[in-house]
Computed example of a mutant assay.
Amino acid sequence: MTWAVGEFSQEEDRYAEVLRRQWSSDTLRGIYRDAYGADYPEEADPFGFVTRTDLVRIAELCGHVRGRRLADLGCGRGGPGLEVARALGTSLSGVDVVEAAVLEARTRASAHEPATDARFEVGSFEATGLGTGSCAAVMSVDALWMVWDKPAAFAEVTRILEPGGHFVFTTWEPAYLDHRALLSEAGFEVLVHEETPAWLSRQLAVYRGILSHRRELAGEMGQTAAATLIAEARETRSVLATTPRVLVAAKKGAESSGLSRRPRRSRA
């Protein structure tokens, strides 16, 4: 997560090489294990800061969706979405801008036990490629911070959700950004807005681990992927204390379509 505020980079494809090489780094997995302990969802092999606690909470907040479709936007390599879909008994549509992540997600889905009806495609928050009203719930884990045009993203989520469907996501929230107001403008009722447990100490522990194991990460993942992680660890620490990681759940109103809203820029 390279911080997308002020001078920090916001390129959504910056992590393509990390996603391609993450599987090859026992050191990176060990850093997360040490920081998160039993709350690290190793079976999901996530890239980011999601925990077992987060995944359980996301599943709870998606609502009653058994037998219908869940979308995971910014799905990465697919693990967290597959775990939530399995818990809920839903099919899954994963969308990510990074083609390498989508290819990894397809491979993971084919080997996932128990089997899950899952499709993964290249797309974005603003243009998912999913049908209007095709999803009973939408989730996203630690991806929304990279989206430049959040009103357009929320309008797209509104479009693909069925009436009354839930949108559940984790992200970081700087003081100048009010996700609740943006969601309300897009026709959502905000149900939950809460800081995730112990996020700060754990995230800082991950960054310390990355900086302490620079050489091992470069050897296992390659210089490009390691440099991306190291830059994040160096750049992001200074803003974390005032930028909480939050979990948000919102419900689409019965009259909302998302089609008539004019996108406007919202930087975060």
Rank of each mutant, 00 (worst) to 15 (best):
F120N: 00
A35S: 10
K150L: 09
V168G: 08
H179P: 15
A225F: 05
D178K: 14
R208F: 06
T2Q: 10
V157Y: 04
G123M: 08
V190L: 13
R14Y: 11
A143N: 12
V98T: 01
G63P: 08
T51V: 00
R77N: 03
D142S: 02
A35T: 09
A226G: 11
Y36K: 02
V95A: 03
D13Y: 08
A87N: 00
E7C: 07
W23P: 04
M139D: 02
E220K: 09
G79Q: 02
Y36M: 03
P80L: 05
R214Q: 15
L73C: 02
V56S: 10
L70R: 09
V56N: 06
T90E: 00
S140Y: 05
G81M: 06
G165R: 03
V157A: 07
E235G: 08
A4M: 10
R106E: 15
S124H: 03
M139K: 03
E156P: 08
A136K: 00
V122S: 01
D142A: 02
E216R: 15
R52L: 12
W199N: 07
W23S: 05
Q10I: 06
I210L: 00
T51F: 00
R237T: 13
E43A: 14
R180F: 08
H193K: 10
E17W: 03
W148C: 13
F167L: 11
Y36G: 02
S238Q: 12
R21F: 09
T27D: 06
E220A: 10
V18C: 04
R52P: 04
R262F: 14
A109I: 01
F154R: 05
T132G: 04
W23K: 12
G131R: 11
G253M: 06
H166I: 10
E255P: 05
A155F: 14
E121F: 04
V65G: 01
F167D: 00
Y32L: 11
S24D: 11
A44S: 14
T196W: 15
V56D: 07
Y176P: 03
S9Y: 07
R69G: 00
A254L: 13
F47P: 02
G219Y: 12
L103F: 06
R68Y: 09
R159H: 06
Q223R: 11
W3R: 10
E255A: 14
E42D: 14
S260E: 10
W172N: 06
G253H: 13
L144P: 04
L240V: 11
W199K: 02
C135S: 15
P151M: 01
A143C: 12
V65Y: 07
G164L: 12
L19K: 08
M146T: 15
L61M: 08
A105N: 00
H112F: 13
P244N: 06
R215P: 02
V56E: 11
I230Q: 13
A227I: 07
T27N: 05
V95E: 01
V206M: 15
P41E: 00
G209T: 05
G165H: 06
R106D: 09
L28D: 00
L217T: 04
A254Q: 14
R119S: 13
A44Y: 00
G133S: 02
D117R: 15
L82I: 03
V248T: 11
Y36N: 01
S260T: 10
E185K: 15
R237G: 13
G129I: 12
Y15A: 10
E162W: 14
E11L: 09
E99V: 03
G219P: 15
A16N: 12
I31G: 02
H213L: 10
G133N: 01
R265C: 09
A153P: 03
